[in-house]
Amino acid sequence: MSAPASLLMRRQRRLAYWLVAPAVLLILVIYVVPMILVFAASLTDYTLVSDYWEFVGLDNYRRMFGDPQFANALHNTLIYALVFLPGAFFTPLFLAIAIQSRRRFRSFFEVIYFMPVTSTLTAMALVWSALMDSRQGIINNSLQALGLPAINFLGSPDTVLYALAGISLWSVIGFNMVLFLAGLTAIPQNLYYAAAVDGADHPVDRFFRVTWPMLAPTSVFVAVTSSITAFKLFDVVAMLTQGKPAHASEVFLYLTFLEGFEYFNMGYSAALSVFFLGIIFLFALVQTLLADRAGRY
């Protein structure tokens, strides 16, 4: 190759590095460096109240697996997720299918169900807590009017996780429904025609032969993002219950927050964050693998 040509190539390569540099820098500063810092902090006994810290190895992780509060938070999160996830998946799926086949009022229902998504959850959470109030709340007043016993939704350790799941469901159903609607719209009408001619004109067959498999990529996405949402539960707890009563609503992220910013155990809090990161990573991995398979027709 002649000299000027190789010079040009070297110049272009240098330009290319300059062009990608801002993006690389942003990714480093926003994602990679904080993750490394959190991991590094999890290996120390750093606290917010003292300048002194020392390297403690895996002590924080050892402590984590022996900590009853950690076990409690994990347990609470799992219960919450088990209540939240089926509702956050099947309700929107059902609504989307019901709405999609409607000609009239379709956009009306879309707007109605999507409304909660556009509102600020922290503000609406306060409204919900007023509705759920044990003495003056509308829900309990209605229950009593029907002769049923009052339920202290947010104040009883037995119901608080269900009440929180209900509020989160209200806020997420519209969003997932729109995702499912988009997925449904993308299914070619001719597939339903072909299925009908092939004998699958019963709604159950239509669903299992065409709708469900064709929705697979959407379903994986909704399931994984909803799982992550379930594990990320924080704002409603911080607004309404602060982990009470008796730690019954102390979910994973809230415990992490408590340890770090209330008890100032930054090192331990960082270890919890790393654990959380691991779980989210697993979900992301599952989604990538499944979406790959589901998307490869």
């Binding site: 070619p188 001719n190 072909a194 001619v197 699958a200 004109d201 498999p213 697979a216 027709y297």
Partner: peptide
Amino acid sequence: DPPSGRNVAMVFQDYALYPHM
């Protein structure tokens, strides 16, 4: 009769094959 009751076979312009099968 519904389509399944007519025993009619149909080939579509875009074939309408089930992509997941």
